[in-house]
Amino acid sequence: MAEEKVSRRDFLLYAMGGWAAVGLGGVLYAMYKTWEPLPEVKAAGIVRFDLSKVQPGQLKVVQWRGKPVFVLRRTPDMDKCDNRSIANEYTVVVGICTHLGCIPNWEPDKKIFKCPCHGGEFNACGVNIFGPPPRPLEIPPFKLEGTTIVLGETGPEYEKMMKG
């Protein structure tokens, strides 16, 4: 047989392989993109809520990205929340326990959030005060537009809060 042996350093073979890898990269990129959340899901990731609708002492639950967000309008007899207070009198936190992800309940007489799963407790600011939860309840990214809070976008108030 007189045909050429393929040497391991056959440049053309490498070029072909390399070029095929480029194509494969393109295909993988398209595949990767198909798993991203759909436009509708992304659009639902931004929720507007009018804070003034909440009465003093009242708790409202807003659904945001599938999670409950607690909006509590605090009264003077509740804890002061310094750096966790939104528009002076509101607590806005993701209602998912920082321990293992259960949804705490608001107990109006004790003025705490109590987690049904392992007895964790959070005060009216969402700060963990008892039990296994390691951290305060999370504050979702937000932006204030007058009395309306936009969940899912970040505004200066949120950035300041995250820094402090």
Binding site: A30, M31, K33, T34, L38, E40
Partner: peptide
């Protein structure tokens, strides 16, 4: 709708 319009590159597939 979903595959042809919403999914990124869904139309390619």
């Amino acid at each position: 709708k979903t595959i042809m319009m919403d999914v990124a590159y869904g139309w390619v597939f």
